[in-house]
């Protein structure tokens, strides 16, 4: 199974995960301070900054795109409850 390496910059931890894992699943296990509200892509509480490796993430869905825009998120931001890692290296600010 393809793997991805997700680095939590503030924590100094890199987690090797199967492709397809959502960021929320990793961050809650590793103790990052990303927090979660609805977990369904509606509230925008889990917006997280991708420092590098956005190309290794799933595309924004219409819902995620809408919520990010409504929250005036930048191009480097994703919803942790929606964004999946596809492979390669990804670094997040958490």
């Amino acid at each position: 199974m393809p793997k991805a390496n997700v680095t939590f910059e503030k924590l100094g931890v890199t987690v090797t995960v199967p492709a397809g894992t959502r960021l929320i699943e990793i961050s809650e296990k590793v103790g990052a301070s990303i927090t979660y509200g609805c977990r369904e892509g509606e509230c925008g509480t889990c917006i997280m900054r991708i420092i590098s490796g956005m190309e290794n993430m799933s595309e924004r869905s219409v819902l995620e795109d809408k919520v990010l825009q409504e929250n005036m998120a930048g191009r480097s931001d994703r919803l942790a409850c929606q964004a999946q890692v596809l492979g390669g290296d990804i670094t997040v600010k958490a």
Binding site: T16, P18, V30
Partner: peptide, 17 residues
């Protein structure tokens, strides 16, 4: 952690679980 002098580590998801 507070001073930023953390040893960077790599761990697998299965180890975390």
């Amino acid at each position: 952690h507070l001073t930023g002098n953390i040893e960077r580590k790599t761990i697998s998801m299965s180890e975390l679980l």
